[in-house]
Amino acid sequence: MTSYFIRRLLLVIPTFLGITLVVFTITRLVPGGPIERIIAQARQMNMSEGNTSGGSSLQDDSPLSPDQIEELKKFYGFDKPILISYLDWLGKILVLDLGVSTRYYDPVWEIIKDKLPVSAYYGIVTTILTYLVCIPLGVLKAIKHKSFIDSTSSIIVLIGYALPGFIVAIILFVWPAAQWDWFPLGGFISEDFEDLTLAEQIWDVIHHSVLPLIAYMIGGFATMTFLMKNTLMDHLASDYIRTAIAKGLSFRSAVFKHAFRNSLIPLATHFGNNISLFLAGSFLIEKVFNIDGLGLLGFESLVERDYPIVLGVLVITSILGLLGNILSDFCVALVDPRVKFD
């Protein structure tokens, strides 16, 4: 088993190289990179200067001299072929140097590190809550198949599934938060967080996160709940449940002692995927609730062509995703003894 996981971890490396190389190349090939941004900025500056002084219109074409551009290219590493500069970039990654933001001129790692706790909080809490809701709900729906509870919860869960998360976020933001003032208007913590007692701090975080969590989770319920319900129903109809009852077990114990663990296997395969998905966040939800997480950071950096941050976020999320996959395998191995890794 250990050797299997070591092999899986080693396999992360080529996958990681593939993902980053592709994205790195794209950042090089698409127009609108940092140099063009600086040129545009410079032009704008010149124009406003030109308007006030009415002076030189010598540099219409390019506000910067070829020398300056050459220097910028060197600064951003654009002067070398893609592969070489990719290797440069990669070499720095290994020592956790993700470069410097082209917008803020801060080290990328520092910026990401600031956002990580928020994203980790939402990612982990969303995953845990999703499982805490979906597993019992799925079990209930399976046992009470076709009952009132089953049908009603199906309708609710499916509505949640059909609504995009950011729409839910907007609805929650407009009414419970803005209109009725039940919840804070976004943010992760209050301004005066530092001055609160520990209990108040915990309450503050919870109070801020209720609405975003609902927005995050509402779409994820359907898949997990129905997966739980359907696998459990399959297992309830299986031969080994009949054996268990023939042994003298009550139906209830047969469900919980026998069918339940078997039904967790498909859910376990989703675990790592879910947690990495939620960790990466959704920039739309983060935007609505003004949560300063990785999703929003990645999105804004992409719009602003802040490639070091884009790549930095990519590094973090792809590593999380790859580790998440291994975590899934590990979870499956925990519940299913038939899964052997060697």
Partner: peptide, 11 residues
């Protein structure tokens, strides 16, 4: 039962 392959709980 008839089907020994599935009559036992696999886990």
């Amino acid at each position: 039962f008839q089907e020994p392959m599935t009559a036992l709980n696999p886990v």
